[in-house]
Amino acid sequence: MGNSPTALEARSHQSPCTMPTLTTARLRLEPFTDSHVAGLNALNADPEVMRYISGRPETMEETVAVVARVKQRWVEFGYAWWSFFDVASGELVGAGCLQNLRREASVHPDPACPLEIGWRLRRDRWGQGLATEAAQAIACFAFDDLHADELYAVCDPANLASANVMKRLGMHFRGLQRWYGQDLSTYSMTRR
Rank of each mutant, 00 (worst) to 15 (best):
A95V: 02
V70W: 04
A95P: 06
G96L: 04
V66G: 00
G94Q: 09
S89K: 07
F77V: 11
V70P: 02
D86W: 02
W81A: 10
G94M: 12
W82V: 02
G94D: 12
G90V: 08
W82C: 01
F85L: 15
S89P: 08
S83Q: 04
F85S: 09
F77G: 07
A95D: 08
S89F: 08
G78E: 11
C97W: 13
E76Y: 10
F85C: 12
Y79F: 12
E76W: 15
L98V: 06
A68T: 14
F85V: 14
W74C: 05
S83V: 12
D86P: 03
Q72R: 05
V93I: 14
L92P: 11
C97A: 15
A88V: 03
D86N: 06
A88L: 13
W82P: 00
F77S: 08
F84E: 00
W81E: 13
C97M: 14
V75I: 13
W81N: 13
V67G: 07
R73T: 02
C97L: 15
L98A: 05
A68K: 15
F84G: 01
A68F: 07
Y79R: 01
V87R: 15
S89W: 09
A88Q: 15
G94I: 08
V87K: 15
L98G: 02
L92F: 09
R73P: 03
L98Q: 03
Y79M: 13
A80R: 06
A68Y: 10
